[in-house]
Computed example of a mutant assay.
Amino acid sequence: MKIQGFSFSAVAAGVRYKDRLDVAMIHSETPCVTAGVFTTSMVKAAPVVLDMERLQHLGQAQTILANSGCANACTGEEGMEAAKTTGRLAAERLGIDEGLVLLSSTGVIGEALNVEAFEKNMDELVGGLSPTKFDDVARAIMTTDTVPKTAERTLILDGKQVSLIGVAKGSGMIMPNMATMLAYICTDVVIDFAPLQEALRFANSRTFNRITVDGDTSTNDMVLIMANGCAGNTPVMTLDNPAGAAFVEALEDILKDLSLQVVRDGEGASKMITVRVESAGSEIEAEVLARTVANSALVKTAFFGEDANWGRILAALGRAGVLFDPNMVDIFFNDVQLARNGRAVGGQSEAGAAEVLKEKEILLTINMKRGVDFAEIYTCDFSLDYVKINADYRS
C-alpha cells in the first residue's frame, strides 16, 4: 500500500515489550494540510493535548510519531515534556520544525513514557523511511489487536486520481465520542484546511462515532488526516460542490471500513452486530436508542451465548431516555422477526433466530414506528475472553 509523497517506518524500540514493533513514523516530503478529531474525555493524554494545540495554531503537520506500549496519559508535566522531547528528537533527525510533528500514543495509562527508547532508535526509525512500509505502521500501533487494520480508496477529481490510505488500531476501550483509539489517513488531495476539517468531522460522526466495543472512551483517541496535495487536482475549497461531496464520500467510506475492522477485532469478540433503529422520531433519537442497546452488557452477552433474548433489547430501549410506545416496537434478527408490537411473535421465530445467532455478522433491526429517521451503531458481543484480556492487561 503506497501513496505519492509519503513514507513510513517502524522499529522495535522496546517501549514496553521486547522484540515487537512499537514505534512508528508517517512522514511527508512536504508539510501537509492536516486536520484532526480527538477524544472528548476530560482526561486527555499528553500527545492529545499537544496535537490539539499544534493543529489549532498551524493546521499543518509533516510527521506523525506514534508508539504502542505506553499511553503517556495521567503523567502530568513529566508526560508532556516526554511527548515534546520525542517530537523534538524526530524533528531534529528529519530537519523539520518540531511544531510539524504530531505525537500519538496507546497502551497502559499512568506509566511514564520510555524516552530513552526513542533516543536509541530514532536514527533507525528515520533511516528506515520507505514508501512501502505502511503495513509496518499498522503492526507497530497494535496493543490487544489481533490483526493490523488498513484500507485504501481512490477517486477522480477534475480528471486527477486522488488516493487515500488509512490505518487504525483499536480493540478495547472503544466507545468514542469522536473516534477510535488511533487512526491516521494519508491523502494526496489538494484541499484547504477548513473543508478538510469539516469533511473529517462529518465522516467521523457517521463511522468511528458509531462504533462501540465496551462503552469506554479512551484518553488517547484521535483521528488525523494529512493531505500533501501531490494529486494536483483543482483545490477543494468547499464541500458544497461535486468535488467536495465526492471527497467526503470517499473519506467516509474508508473510515467506515476501518471502524468496522475495529469492531470485528473487538477484544474477545466472536460476532459483529449492526444495531439498526429505524422509523424513529429523529436521527439523534435513533442513534441514542441504538447506542443504548449496543452498549448493554446483557444484550452483548446474550449474543455471545446465542440466546435470542429479545426482552433484553426492549428493556435496554426503555432506559435510553427517549419517549416511545413499547407496544409498537418490532424486533428482527436479520430477517427473522422475534417481536411484533412489543410482544413475542412465537412459532418458529425462536428457532430461526437461533440459527441467525450462529453467524459471525448479524443485523439487529428495531422498528420504533414513530417516524422516518434511522441510525446504525456497530458493536460486538461480550465473551469470556474479553474479561480475561482486561483482567490482566498490565501484566
Rank of each mutant, 00 (worst) to 15 (best):
N334V: 01
K44Q: 15
N309Y: 15
V248C: 08
I313K: 01
F38K: 02
L363G: 00
F332E: 12
A203E: 09
V236S: 07
P148A: 00
D188I: 13
L239M: 15
E249I: 05
A351L: 14
L357R: 00
P235H: 08
I3R: 12
M25I: 12
I3A: 03
T63F: 07
L384C: 04
D385L: 06
K360F: 05
L21G: 10
A294P: 07
G371Q: 12
T187N: 05
L182T: 09
K160V: 03
A183T: 03
E116C: 03
R206V: 04
R319I: 15
V33K: 11
T143G: 00
V108P: 01
G99H: 03
R206C: 05
T143W: 00
N121H: 04
N72M: 07
L196E: 08
L164E: 01
P195F: 15
V167F: 03
R93D: 01
R291H: 06
L50C: 12
S130A: 11
L164C: 02
E249Q: 07
A286D: 15
I141E: 11
N241D: 14
R16K: 13
A199H: 09
R340D: 05
N341P: 06
E198N: 00
G107N: 12
L113C: 08
A66S: 08
G232T: 15
M122Q: 08
V236C: 02
G107V: 04
S259R: 00
M173Y: 08
L196N: 09
V236T: 00
N390R: 04
G232S: 13
K360H: 04
T75L: 11
L357E: 01
R20C: 15
P235G: 04
A24R: 02
M222W: 15
G76F: 08
A351K: 15
A391I: 09
A10M: 11
A10Y: 00
L224T: 01
D136Y: 11
A199K: 03
E252I: 02
G170H: 00
A391D: 08
N228P: 08
V275M: 07
L200A: 14
D392N: 15
N67Y: 06
G229V: 05
G170Y: 02
V329W: 03
I225Y: 11
D51T: 02
S383V: 03
E78Y: 01
F324M: 13
A231R: 10
V299S: 03
S130E: 04
D19G: 02
S270L: 11
A82P: 07
T154P: 05
I211Y: 02
I3C: 04
